[in-house]
Write a protein that binds this DNA or RNA. Structure first.
Lengths: 342, 342
DNA sequence: GTGAAAGCGCTAACAG
DNA sequence: CTGTTAGCGCTTTCAC
């Protein structure tokens, strides 16, 4: 039962328009004298008047709320810290600009089209935009601006503004590292259901190029796609005779691979080297510590936030693809091949 | 730009009331015939009608949004994973119940009273409720229910529904562990500015009781309060002659202490044992790995979520204090005292 | 069965 | 300088 503008107006003996102008400014043509204004402010204060955000948003068609869409929010506490850094980066630019963040439920549980059109959001940041016609359509029909945090969609780079790391370049770093250690046969492990995401595809692309450039051209046998828990590992290890290293497409897949390897009695890195993508604090806690490609997630997230604000502001960005360079963190999960025979 | 209820009504040649009833049900007395209803639904579909959430919320005084108040959101990516687990726990109960989560900016940057009264929130979960008269007043005047995730406020346990771990019991576990190793002189490290938080006070209390019970009664010399980065460590180490172990009030303080100790050339655990509070994955990545008290954060957060839903639902809980037991994770930062002389 | 109308709380044209 | 008015899009009471 908070006090309304109308009640303040009545108590002050003026119109609601006057109160609104005095307390919130706005572009209204209403003028109020110094003295009256002071009275109004005093009364509002005394009555503990609180503007109703809903009414105001409805009227102005502006909510000061940004939506966060995650490909799978359930993963947020599953070990990898990717989402934490990203949340931190986004918040660091949006909060000072008087925006709030709303975390949307998993995409599978909501109708994304209506979520983008129901007036609650001024904009959205989409983490790991999926390669799906439906979703693309939703974005293009969206009445609010959206920024994607992932590689541009192949063949449709202009469909959506995207911020990502240089996936190809990052993968190149990993391949070079393995090659320098002496690895020639490297297995690229994708994740079931994620093979078609732009990031995954860009990493595959970078992998092929790097391997070819180093004189080890790939074929189909260099690629597998495992379940998120990597339980195909033992089967693979027992039948595969050639690969000496694994490049896992992301941090979680790499860490699951390490676990399965340990279960199967495989000595990483002496019998098998493992490299991951997304080097975070988490990589320090795996056993062995995970060698991985690092992307500047916080910076990328800040960039996405700033971009979104300018889009909401009505500006159109000069380009649609923003790319950040990756670096590489060597830890303990890689070594020369065959230091211990299989 | 989205299509409104009115437009659907016009296209169907019926009243907005009829459309509202057909599409959203509600408690309205309006009845619509089968055939008409089907037509209306068909037209709404074709026009891609999307209900405006703002208008609906304004009308119903219900938003399906829960606010998350953090004592310091900036810490979320600062190492400790406490907040991640908590976010995960809260989301896991609220999302399936059709609620969304809004992350509020730091308390220092908003007016908490109006945030709770501006109609945007159906309820709030407050992490680390501070011991402050202002805040307490804000909570008690709040038009929406609030659940705190921390120890009950001493002397005002009924002021706010709170969910916490058994801080005293958890601290007791740590003290017992150190005592069993042979430590008799333990230093309790608090954090500047956090000394008065309910959790900190409860841990101090538990510490005093446990030490006394084990025959090592405390006095003022057993307590210090350091800056968040623990830069008082070296100074303390050089002047203190008696303590052989440190109990840090939380995970971050413990990890900062480990860093300072390493800088000062102090061998943990052989010259000094360190125990922390909040055992998470992060404790696996410190050097040495941190021995710490574990609280079931996800479960606590889920409990808080469920509690909040029932409060929003108009139910009043049978009690106001919900406590979860702690466990203890022994890692590498503790050992018998004086295995290496200072 | 159906529609008309009031109003949630606010802001911005438009008049004085 | 100040007030009146017309909605934003929706739900619901009331009248037919």
């Amino acid at each position: 039962m908070p006090v309304t503008l109308k009640e303040v107006a009545e108590a002050a003996g003026v119109s609601t328009a006057a109160v609104s102008k005095v307390l919130h400014g706005g572009t209204s043509a209403v003028r109020v004298g110094k003295k009256r204004a002071a009275e109004i402010r005093e009364i509002a204060e005394r009555l503990q008047y609180t503007p109703n955000a809903l009414a105001r948003s409805l009227r102005k068609s502006r909510t000061q709320v940004i939506g966060l869409i995650f490909d799978n929010f359930g993963h947020i506490a599953a070990g990898p810290l990717y989402y934490v850094y990203m949340l931190d980066g986004v918040a660091s630019v949006l909060f000072p600009n008087k925006y709030r963040l709303i975390i949307l439920p998993d995409l599978r549980d909501i109708d994304i089209r209506s979520t983008l059109s129901d007036g609650q959001l001024d904009g959205a940041i989409w983490c790991k935009f999926p390669e799906s016609g439906d979703m693309l359509e939703a974005v293009q029909q969206s009445p609010i601006p959206i920024v994607a945090l992932n590689s541009p969609i192949p063949g449709c780079a202009d469909c959506i503004v995207s911020v990502s790391c240089d996936n190809e370049g990052g993968t190149w770093l990993a391949v070079e590292h393995l090659h320098a250690l002496g690895h020639r046969e490297v297995l690229f492990v994708q994740e079931k259901g994620e093979e078609q995401t732009p990031d995954s595809m860009a990493r595959v692309e970078g992998f092929k190029k790097a391997m070819a450039a180093l004189g080890c051209p790939c074929n189909a046998s260099n690629f597998v796609s495992w379940s998120p828990n990597a339980d195909e590992f033992a089967q693979w290890w027992n039948t595969d005779g050639s690969h000496t290293a694994i490049f896992a497409w992301n941090e979680r897949m790499a860490s699951e691979t390490l676990k399965r390897a340990a279960e199967a009695g495989v000595d990483v890195p002496r019998q098998l080297s493992v490299v991951g993508f997304d080097s975070t604090q988490y990589c320090e806690s795996t056993s062995p510590r995970l060698t991985a490609v690092r992307q500047p997630i916080q910076q990328m997230a800040q960039c996405a936030g700033r971009l979104l604000l300018s889009l909401i502001d009505g500006q159109s960005p000069d380009h649609t693809t923003f790319t950040f360079p990756c670096t590489f963190d060597v830890r303990d999960s890689t070594a020369s091949p065959h230091s211990v025979p299989r």
